[in-house]
Design a protein around this nucleic acid. Structure first.
Length: 694
RNA sequence: GGGCGAGUGGCGGAAUUGGCAGACGCGCGGGUCUUAGGAGCCCGUGGGGAAACCCGUGUCGGUUCGACCCCGACCUCGCCCACCA
């Protein structure tokens, strides 16, 4: 009986897979296709067991489906642009490209020693021009369709990373990467109009039956659709008298039926009318100071509602268009400038925030919706009533159910030209400009005569120049390279300047799964026929931390490619598995915490199969796991037992009758039966059950 | 505050979804082989009991011939979102 020696076994087979290119595939129409994908890797330097776990999940699916006769595409690549490369380069006095490519080479070796069945010929790295030129190609299409546009706006700014962040990248008021509190900054930025697809991105979630409910819920909340109305409250001039035509504060409300109870209006401190009201006042300094103070309040606390509701009276009034009575205008720290119109009508009887605000400042609390079976009064109300009921003290609408009143009053506002029904999304357009070096140059030329001119296809890619000074200074390092910046306008030939910002790296990862279908196409981002064969991804696995960002951007980009005629259908991923993290000593593994488990060491000691078996066996794939060394010992011993058992059985099985079923005795029949029961069970545990730990 | 999910041995977890609770692994105990064993192999291992047997899936109720599984209430934990008008 021979011992189990994993290193010999694994090296032998890994060499054979490489020599025979065992996992390369073409569009073979005689077989059903299966596109199996794990989220590609950021080449940080070393694979850790968290990576191993994710790639094992995919490898099990890929190998199982191959054995079941599917034509399986299982590619891998590198999300290779991004800030860590730049920071590491500054620290180690190297270049981001050198650092990145070295890391890729090292990690690729690690993954190969794990025996994952990748089609390595399709490997891609987003930092290489043959990939990012298609980011640029796509960007020009977005620009031509008005889906990429420039916008001067208040942006989220990370002082540590010296760059702008998308809303999705602000976590608890801090930078998603480094946690530094995010501040606001006025910048001219490129944005992608993801909101044009908001309705579709939301409604199509209902079709994603292969996605975890948790992720669907998170995306629904993130898109945040609410139906309501915008209503104009005409502004009473500073000196009093009738409002001038067209002068109004517009508010957004989901409860226009409560408008008879709107006893004040509150604007966000960032609202443009704040400055105007201050300028028109005899002494606007107190108003200015208060608004400035609200703006400066800690952004994260303000966003999380941890700050006491505070406000200041502007001294001005607007006319409630339904009661036709004047109501005071306040500035409040709880009103968000980025949502709706940046101003709200205060209905303290039926909105808890307005209630608290009114209590604090002694504003009237009218009751205009009464619940069934009891009668609320302003005097006894101790919290806002926002339940079902019928309208009270609401002119001609009194007595109507609140939802019916909502419909009628929206229609009335439209008929009178003072408002309209609308759908408001929480989702905002995606700011993609980054003032950093290590990313895709935005392929736009600024010409004084022609305006914004996209770089023509035949001049793509706009190569990222090799600079050596990319210290963060608040503007793009590319802006300091005259050879890069100064360029002839493609339209008029005159002197013009290149855009010097680079793209958010989430652009890179929003379509790489399409590129894998045709990874080396140098005429198009991919051949639509190949994507028609392979797409959509049948099984996608990765960390739940991408439940919003990456997965919503990818759904957006897939629809853009659809509208460009390159893809049919809009959903990129049919089935999604979000795997849990691997912890050690209760914490995520990281170099700084010193709790990283190096897969190379484990492979050297126990072999890749024991490591693979252990990381799958220890818990269901969706769950977090706590790493234990003794569990890996157990997996190794288990494989040793399997080896010895097979070593003992194979001679006996080889001597058995060649024609199955003809002369099996009782034990043989029982064994055969057991074999097939096991095959059935194991198959079902992998697909569809995804119980990879059994 | 809202949403989603989970509570099963000393531990990680099974139970193919209403039909033998605790598969498999870790740990622990005993044995065997051995100069030695921290390798391998064998036996045991939810609790109580000498045994027959009894009790056991967070708590309390309900449905059912039958409940870890379904329903209601509560408790605890985890994750996500959160002043979104």
């Amino acid at each position: 009986m021979s011992d189990y020696r994993p290193q010999e076994i694994e090296q032998k087979w890994q060499a054979r897979w490489a020599a025979t290119r065992a996992f390369e595939v073409t569009e073979d129409r005689s077989k059903p296709k299966f596109y199996c994908l794990e989220m590609f890797a950021y080449p940080s330097g070393h694979a850790h067991v968290g990576h191993v776990r994710n790639y094992m999940i995919g490898d099990i699916m890929a190998r199982t489906m191959r054995m079941r006769g599917y034509n399986v595409l299982h590619p891998f690549g590198w999300d290779a642009f991004g800030l860590p490369a730049e920071n590491a380069a500054i620290q180690n006095r190297t270049h981001p490209e050198t650092w990145t490519l070295d890391n890729i080479a090292h990690m690729k070796g690690q993954l190969q020693r794990l025996g994952i069945s990748y089609a390595w010929e399709r490997e891609l790295a987003t930092c290489l021009p043959d990939y990012y030129r298609w980011n640029q190609w796509l960007f020009t299409r977005l620009f031509q369709r008005d889906l990429a546009y420039r916008r001067r706006s208040t942006v989220n700014w990370c002082a540590s990373c010296q760059t702008v962040l998308a809303n999705e990248q602000v976590v608890d008021g801090g930078c998603w990467r480094c946690g530094t509190p995010v501040t606001e900054r006025e910048l001219e930025q490129w944005s992608l109009r993801i909101t044009a697809y908001a309705d579709e991105l939301l409604s199509a979630l209902d079709t994603l039956e292969g996605w975890p409910e948790k992720v669907l819920t998170m995306q629904r909340n993130w898109i945040g659709r609410s139906e309501g109305a915008r209503v104009q409250f005409p502004i009473v001039p500073a000196g009093g008298g009738a409002p001038d035509a067209g002068e109004a504060i517009e508010v957004f409300t989901t409860r226009i039926d409560t408008i008879y109870g709107a006893s004040f209006v509150v604007m966000a401190p960032e609202h443009p009318l704040v400055e105007r009201f201050a300028a028109e006042a005899a002494d606007g300094s107190a108003l200015r100071a208060a608004a400035a103070r609200f703006r400066a309040q800690d952004r994260s606390a303000r966003m999380q509602g941890d700050v006491e509701k505070e406000g200041v009276d502007t001294g001005r009034s607007v006319i409630n268009p339904f009661t036709e009575q004047p109501v005071p205008v306040w500035v409040g720290n709880f009103v968000l400038s980025g949502y709706g119109t940046g101003a709200v009508m205060g209905v303290p009887g039926h909105d808890q925030r307005d209630f608290e605000f009114a209590r604090t400042y002694g504003l009237p609390i009218p009751i205009v919706v009464q619940p069934d079976g009891r009668m609320l009064t302003s005097e006894t109300l101790d919290e806002a009533f926002d339940g079902d009921g019928s309208l009270a003290a609401s002119g001609p609408y009194t007595g109507l159910r609140w939802d019916e009143a909502n419909r009628q009053m929206t229609a009335a506002a439209e008929a009178r030209g003072i408002g309209h029904g609308t759908v408001q999304y929480r989702l905002k357009d995606w700011g993609v400009s980054r003032q950093r070096y290590w990313g895709t140059p935005i392929p736009i030329i600024h010409c004084d005569r022609c305006g914004l001119v996209p770089v023509p296809d035949d001049q793509l890619p706009v190569l990222l120049p090799r600079v050596t000074d990319f210290t963060g200074r608040g503007d793009s390092p590319l802006a300091h390279i005259p050879e890069f910046v100064n360029v002839a306008c493609p339209t008029c030939g005159g002197a013009a300047r290149r855009e010097t910002d680079t793209m958010d790296t989430f652009v890179d990862s929003s379509w790489y799964f399409l590129r894998f279908c045709d990874a080396h196409n140098d005429a198009l981002p991919f051949d639509p026929a190949k994507v028609a064969y392979w797409g959509p991804v049948d099984f996608y696995s990765g960390g739940v931390e991408h439940a919003i960002l990456h997965l919503i951007y990818s759904r957006f980009f897939t629809r853009v490619f659809r509208d460009l005629g390159f893809v049919t259908g809009g959903e990129p991923f049919t089935r999604l598995l979000t795997q849990g993290m691997v912890l050690r000593h209760g914490a995520v593994m990281s170099k700084s915490k010193g709790n990283v488990v190096d897969p190379d060491e484990m492979v050297g000691q126990y072999g890749a199969d024991a490591l693979r078996l252990y990381v799958m066996f220890v818990a269901p794939p969706e769950k977090e796991v706590e790493w234990t060394d003794s569990g890996l010992d157990g997996a190794f011993r288990f494989l040793g037992r399997v080896w010895r058992l097979a070593d003992f059985l194979i001679p006996a099985v080889s001597a058995a009758p060649a024609v199955a079923g003809l002369s099996l005795d009782g034990d043989e029949r029982a064994l055969r039966h057991r074999t097939h029961v096991t095959i059935r069970r194991v198959t079902g545990d992998i697909d569809p059950r995804m119980h990879l730990n059994t």
